[in-house]
Amino acid sequence: MRWFDCGVNLFSAQFADQETAIIAAANNAGVTRCLLISSDLAESKKNTQFSQQHPGCYCTAGVHPHQAAQVADNWLSELTEQLANPKIVAIGECGLDFNRDFSPRAVQQAVFAEQLKLSQHFKLPVYLHERDAFSTQIAMLKEQPPLAGIAHCFTGNSQQLKAYLDLGLYIGITGWLCDERRGQELQQALAYIPLDRLILETDAPYLIPRNIRPRPRCNSPALLPAIGSEVARLTGRSLQQIAEQSYQNSCQLLQLPVEEPTDAN
């Protein structure tokens, strides 16, 4: 089986000086491709440099809503320049977060809107973050529809899920699904996700799947099959089918060839 982890925070402090080993362990577990998530332009530079040295790694570039208030005056031109790199296959992590409000909401919306424009211009998918801002985010997506995108780490209900699907988005499922305390609503919504819209992501080092025993110190892309196992259990499908379909969906979203990465991208 081959797996594609469509969400890794490789340059998180918890992975410091272990980045290469983390990816090697993932490959040994059958996770042959990883998408490295960027929260700001400095992180996207790190992700790009790493991806250029590691076949099977790709990355996003963009500004997370938490970082929206900290962008430099020239952030848009710098991001535009970064997007020329073929290792960057999506814009983000971008969107809205009205739960913590680390950046003023108006600033979040302005920075998000600019990234939606870039998505249209460069024909790149958006990698979406949303927390407690669903109605505003959906309205902005309808106003500036992206070419494609993923609802990263989706934890919402069936109604929200259907709204994202109506926009043609893919749905990112993480270890949240494996949480018997918090994941019940998501487990119910899972039944409404078409198999060709399902994408798996660890969001490592966060969201350790709670179906893993003994519990590891932190999450890693090598643990992605545990999330696939829970999807298979809840949907009644085979693990092989979940692995292969989510792999192909990730390639489709990110406009990558499906074959194993001997490609130079």
Rank of each mutant, 00 (worst) to 15 (best):
H152A: 08
C153H: 11
C153T: 12
F154L: 09
F154W: 10
T155D: 11
T155Y: 07
T155G: 03
N157Q: 13
N157A: 09
N157K: 14
S158D: 14
S158M: 09
S158L: 11
S158I: 12
Q160I: 05
Q160W: 06
L161N: 06
L161T: 05
K162M: 12
K162I: 15
A163C: 09
Y164W: 15
Y164K: 06
L167I: 04
L167S: 04
L167E: 11
G168V: 00
L169F: 15
L169K: 07
L169M: 15
L169E: 06
Y170S: 02
I171Q: 05
G172W: 02
I173G: 02
I173L: 03
I173A: 01
T174G: 05
T174R: 11
G175W: 00
G175Q: 07
C178R: 07
D179K: 12
D179L: 00
D179F: 04
D179I: 03
E180T: 15
E180M: 13
R181A: 15
R181C: 10
R182P: 06
R182T: 05
G183T: 05
Q184M: 14
E185Q: 15
E185L: 13
L186I: 09
L186R: 00
L186D: 01
L186S: 02
Q188F: 09
Q188W: 09
Q188M: 13
A189G: 10
L190N: 01
L190V: 09
A191Q: 15
I193C: 00
L195S: 05
L195T: 02
D196T: 03
D196Y: 02
R197E: 07
L198I: 02
L198C: 00
L198N: 01
I199G: 00
I199E: 04
I199Q: 03
I199K: 07
L200Q: 00
L200N: 04
E201M: 03
T202P: 10
D203F: 10
A204V: 05
A204R: 03
A204K: 06
Y206E: 07
L207Q: 07
I208D: 00
P209R: 00
P209H: 08
P209G: 12
I212K: 04
R213Y: 11
R213N: 14
R215E: 12
R215W: 05
R215G: 02
P216I: 06
P216C: 05
P216S: 06
P216V: 01
R217H: 14
R217Y: 13
R217V: 13
C218N: 14
C218G: 10
C218K: 14
N219I: 05
S220L: 10
S220H: 14
S220N: 12
P221N: 14
A222Y: 10
L224I: 08
L224R: 03
P225D: 08
A226E: 12
A226L: 12
